[in-house]
């Protein structure tokens, strides 16, 4: 009996032996209360936002906590909007980029992204309709990249006309590139839509951008001109079937699913579990990257760590 138990344990953890390990936290901080808010680490700050804000609701809907814990609040205000949805936010040292949607009282939907100065809070909005942004990132060259979709009559996905799912803008918000055509990339319902397959992600990389498209079971890397540089077709590990969150550090691509952290093998397409240090017993839920460090939360604390053998 003991032998069976031992064998089971060995098999259960066998893949982890060859996998990677989270280091002891390099740094830790208390996580502020973010009840009802979505959050991520980006641009050297913890960003939190209210996904839906109706016109009648007062107050701020976007918050930024600097590395020293200082909190700044912003209000993404869209005149004439009955409802504003914030789908994603990315930060650079100077700018917050917000992928959003505004709906007026007549039901008119406007896709947009907003660029907010972290210092002056001045805001410019680029209306992207009929393209509807879902994910956004800012590259080191300050270009803005947006992952999104276009819908057809009745807001039906499959009635949508041909469109690009990835668009590239100047730091001022002018369109300079369109990449990845739909329905050419019609895996799942739509690569930019989480229809149960997992949460798509758009991440800035040193040489371009990375796209995690769970609907396609693909990780794509595009260079700064939008050319496909790498394509990894992956499969879910074990019983996991929904990728919740993706982070790319200088050392790899990481995903959170099934309440565990995994690293994607870029050569194998396999997700390998990342072991946690004993000092972090609760699940390590990734928030983003800070250079090569993985930023994650666990038991109400934010930790910085590296991943290695």
């Amino acid at each position: 009996m003991q032998l069976v138990y031992w064998a089971s344990v060995t098999l259960l953890f066998a893949p982890a032996v060859a996998g990677q390990r989270l280091s002891e936290p390099i740094r830790s901080a208390d996580r502020p209360s973010l009840q009802g808010l979505s959050s991520k680490w980006s641009g050297g700050a913890l960003i939190a936002w209210r996904t839906a804000t109706s016109a009648s609701e007062r107050g701020q809907n976007l918050f930024l906590y600097d590395a020293d814990g200082a909190r700044r609040g912003y209000r993404l205000e869209i005149p004439d909007a009955a409802m504003v949805h914030i789908w994603d936010v990315a930060a650079s040292p100077s700018t917050l980029a917000v992928a959003a949607q505004a709906i007026d009282a007549s039901g008119t939907v406007a896709g947009l992204f907003a660029l907010i100065s972290r210092q002056s809070q001045s805001t410019t909005i680029t209306q992207t309709s009929p393209f509807e942004p879902q994910r956004i990132t800012i590259r080191a060259d300050s270009t803005i990249w947006v992952l999104g979709y276009q819908l057809g009559e009745g807001r039906r996905v499959k009635a949508a006309p041909r469109h690009s799912i990835l668009k590239q803008y100047t730091p001022e918000g002018r369109l300079i590139g369109e990449h990845l055509q739909w329905p050419g990339m019609a895996c799942g319902l739509h690569p930019a839509i989480d229809h149960g397959e997992g949460n798509p992600a758009l991440l800035a990389l040193p040489g371009g951008v990375g796209l995690m498209l769970p609907a396609c079971n693909e990780w794509l890397e595009l260079d700064s001109a939008g050319n496909l540089a790498r394509k990894v077709v992956w499969r879910y590990p074990g019983t996991a079937d929904t990728l919740i969150f993706t982070v790319a550090t200088g050392t790899g691509v990481f995903g959170y699913m099934d309440a565990h952290l995994f690293q994607l093998g870029l050569d194998t397409g396999r997700w390998d579990p990342v072991l946690q240090p004993d000092s972090v017993p609760a699940a390590a839920v990734p928030l983003g990257n800070d250079g090569n460090a993985l930023v994650y939360e666990s038991s109400g604390r934010i930790h910085w760590a590296t991943v290695g053998p």
Partner: peptide, 9 residues
């Protein structure tokens, strides 16, 4: 934002 082209309502 509600001027110009817009997405389906």
């Amino acid at each position: 934002v509600f001027h110009g082209p817009h997405a389906p309502n």
